[in-house]
Write a protein that binds this DNA or RNA. Structure first.
Lengths: 183, 183
DNA sequence: GTCTATAATTTGATAGAC
DNA sequence: GTCTATCAAATTATAGAC
């Protein structure tokens, strides 16, 4: 992938994190990158293509981040809480899948499919780490919702308050996950 | 408020639940109601006015619903889980504040303020019902996120799975709340 | 690969008749 | 209160020169 294409995806991701699919335009992206909107269309023919590519990349990056952190911290719950917390470092760093997922019924098919894949990947990995399916759904919902509520009230400490119970490490890391990482 | 104004708000709310603030237009609302877009502007001068009025009404209706249900079910946690679940009865019934809250940084000021008020109202009531502040944040985050995730994967059973632990009634209703309702 | 130019449509909003 | 008519701007997308 060319540097320009990557820069376009970076700019699109930044704006999608704030306003979702309808929260950015080709002209804005072009201005961010320093090209013309027709050049953006050259790399990504339609808006649907661009948004889907951004979410696909985000999903892969998230999966890699999780794998990396699992090497340092044995409790998978803490890893996920911290990973989602990382999306809140600045005001325009919402998880793009939380933003798009909230209006999923209104998204172009390819984009909705990528967002769906993101959440399925998260749930699959949590189960793989040893969490029962319902517990995985609960954790995923809590950290996603904590992002939304914290964003809405513009107070990011809400995220920490909402997830505090998970990070108390009242329970050890599930056996299965620990065993898997030790090979 | 006139019948037309109410019908406009109904149509706007229905579309906002799907696509958020940028997910509807004055012309669409007008067509839904059976008037012209200039008539919509007569009742709500700007789009910001309309969206803010919709959220303000939604917040009041939610507060009333909660109060009503607390008279039937003594466990406030179950009441809130059920109330948010009710927004998922059909595909275009997301909680509008979950949708707008996810892109709160990109909303007109008045709309963002109303969404903020909604979540503060929820948290305030939960604390009033006897939940510790952190637990209130956790519950609110979980049910909000469960809506988002269920919407994104287009499988509403995710909501029930994610909130199951809350509805097990492993703990009795907080004393304070029970006492309050008994006057 | 990037540009200029433009098509075709939609948007929020206003003026003024009735 | 609702309408017709319209404006000014923005939108996604394409054609074709370089």
């Amino acid at each position: 992938m060319s540097d320009v294409a990557a820069a376009i995806m970076d700019a699109a991701e930044r704006r999608m994190r704030r306003g979702g699919f309808n929260g950015f335009s080709f002209r804005e992206i072009a201005a961010d990158v320093g090209v013309k909107s027709s050049s953006v269309h050259y790399h990504f023919p339609t808006k649907e293509d661009l948004a889907a590519a951004v979410i696909k990349r985000y999903t892969a990056e998230t999966a890699e981040l999780i794998e990396r952190e699992l090497g340092k911290e044995s409790n998978p719950i803490k890893v996920w809480v911290k990973a989602f917390r990382g999306t809140l470092h600045s005001q325009d760093r919402m998880c793009p899948c939380a933003v798009l997922g909230a209006s999923s019924q209104d998204l172009p098919p390819e984009v909705a499919a990528e967002v769906k894949r993101f959440f399925k990947m998260c749930h699959d990995k949590l189960v793989e780490e040893g969490l029962p399916p319902d517990e995985a759904s609960q954790l995923l919902s809590t950290i996603t919702g904590a992002l939304v509520v914290a964003n809405a009230v513009n107070d990011f400490s809400v995220y920490d308050n909402a997830t505090r119970e998970f990070t108390k490490s009242k329970k050890p890391a599930p056996m299965k996950a620990a065993a898997r990482r030790l090979k």
